[in-house]
Nucleic acid binder design. Structure first.
Lengths: 333, 333
DNA sequence: ACGATTCGTTGGAACGTTCCAACACCCACG
DNA sequence: CGTGGGTGTTGGAACGTTCCAACGAATCGT
């Protein structure tokens, strides 16, 4: 017989009932030491593994949370995910991860799959769901959205930095360095990109500078193309909507033979680790922390479903590096 | 009642038996159109979601594969994962993702958890398991190891590039550019790092050059530190054990005020996307493809468990960029 | 007109657990 | 010496599906 051993097999081999075997494997103190040893030994000899699906079914809980991640390729999301996983594990949850690859309809079906798997909660590390879908999901299961504020949906919490404020900080930083021709390369037409853009515009206005905005996207190629346009417009400083795009912008600068920061300054947004090595200034968010907060909010809400909707803001700050201001390497020498 | 609706609820509302409701929801052709419509309507009105745990239990299959990823932060693994997910989804499997964070013991317990969830197969995107553990897991469930060759374990397949060969290609490339003082920054003391190092040494020997090896690791900081040592040794070209470390090396070069490639040439290993923007030469592996192959091997083996152990090698090649040879940007101008 | 076939439908068993109520046993207590 | 309370142990029900054998009704061929 090559069938996987079940509790019955273990119980039989140990000469006890399935119930006692179950108790013993759960570490209950009510089982006699002698039977406990016999049961554990039998389980070991048989290579027994408890069947979580059966267990979940009867217990009415899966101890699993579902995580949707917008884009696996953006290291920023990976860093958030890492925080979610860490905290979820600590709290006794496994994670079931899916991606919609930035397509709303596969996103929908993937999350539906999570619900069918009876995840106890949902963490959406960015998403492209319609409001209706989002509300539907949040109605069924505790949900937290990471990366932007979502209010007014019952059963839903959110975590993010303040994108408008962060963008203003970036402008402040560049303006303080004496830049006037600060061009913003956008992240396309989505909520976060719009907020960052708004912050940029407010910041420019506050400094009495004329805003100049060029289209981009949240990808390397978007940053590359946007940067080229910005340079043609005579930019002396680039504020790019996210770090990935900033890396693309860096390539554009290199291809144009421009030095950073001597010819053009560069600031990104997100705070992804890699930019440290690249010595690029960025508006940093505490990514892993956002993931941890998300997991905490979620597990809290699972424990207490009625709780009112909460939003947690994490701190956003400029991490100044060599791409703006004096070069770090040069300074060190 | 706020209990989630079950098949019984749907059946009752539609005025049929649970069996027929089940049939209808599975899209069986044997149910009369009129009852089918009634059942579907009832399900919709109730917001019914099939319970996958119950379904898995009785069908004796979960349609889920478990994926272990060594390190979420290395975009290389994310790219492989992407391939796995894509193909798994196509073949009708969900994925359950875990990380051991490079710690063998949490790795072990995480994978044990996957087994308890009755995943039908295991994809290990790099791992630190002992041979004994690996064999134990492979005995229980079809398994494929991505990233290095693993022979002789029944029930286990593997996919990788040829690391020794790839490293030789890197040396060939640099030697062809006229470099003689090619220093290798290692990836530490692990199997892949050793293979790449061996390939480097063979390559150097083949060109009649004297090998020079400095310790590093598969991280940015390892590459940074290793590069500094290499530069002190008078390197004119750096062959760094992986791309992440190559980014660290780039930072070291920048901090030393050295130009790439005029002063020092740089070659990485893995083929991660980001390096394209950074214009760094790398020994590229088709990462997403490796993930797809892994998923294919796995689903094949699930379908046909007796199949003999197979190894699939993917092609590895040098992608020459500006960090070795004439600068791309300059050439374009 | 009657058995055979098809069509649509149904109850029941099973999947592998957990948990509850109930039980047998033993010991201590009055 | 009976009673009360542990202490260990047990069978059974339940979780929400799927699937099989079996069913009644309608349709078919002869």
């Amino acid at each position: 017989m090559s069938r996987r051993p079940t509790l019955y097999d273990v119980a039989e081999r140990a000469g006890v009932s399935k119930s006692l075997a179950s108790l013993a494997l759960q570490g209950s103190p009510k089982v006699a030491p002698s039977s406990r040893d016999a049961i554990l030994a039998a389980a070991d000899e048989l290579g027994y593994r408890p069947n979580r699906t059966a267990s979940s079914l009867v217990r009415q809980r899966t101890s699993t949370i579902g995580v949707h991640i917008l884009d696996l390729h953006n290291p920023v999301f990976a860093e958030i995910l890492d925080g979610v996983q860490e905290r979820a594990r600590q709290r006794g949850y496994s994670t079931l991860l899916v991606t919609g690859n930035a397509d709303p309809s596969t996103e929908r079906t993937e999350i539906t799959g999570l619900l069918e798997s009876r995840v106890e909660g949902l963490v959406l590390i960015a998403h492209r769901l319609s409001d209706a879908d989002l509300e539907e999901f949040a109605r069924e299961v505790p949900t937290v959205v990471v990366t932007w504020r979502t209010d007014g949906v019952p059963g839903l919490d959110s975590v993010s930095g303040d994108d408008e404020h962060g963008a203003r900080l970036a402008v402040d930083h560049l303006a303080a360095l004496g830049h006037e021709r600060i061009v913003h390369v956008t992240g396309g037409d989505n909520r976060i990109a719009r907020e960052r853009r708004a912050g940029y515009e407010q910041g420019m206005a506050a400094h009495g500078l004329e805003p100049y905005v060029v289209d981009g996207s949240f990808t390397e190629s978007g940053g590359y193309a946007g940067a080229l346009t910005a340079l043609d417009a005579g930019a002396t400083a680039l504020f790019v909507a996210n770090d990935l795009a900033a890396i693309g912008a860096l390539a554009a600068l290199r291809d144009r033979g421009l030095r950073v920061p001597e010819d053009v300054a560069l600031v990104g947004y997100d705070g992804m680790r890699l930019l440290e090595s690249l010595d690029v200034t960025t508006v940093a968010q505490p990514l892993a922390e956002m993931g941890r907060v998300a997991a905490d909010l979620l597990t809290d809400r699972i424990a207490q479903p009625g709780r009112e909707s909460t939003y947690r803001r994490v701190e956003t700050r400029v991490v100044a590096r060599g791409s703006s201001g004096p070069r770090r390497g040069a300074a060190r020498r």
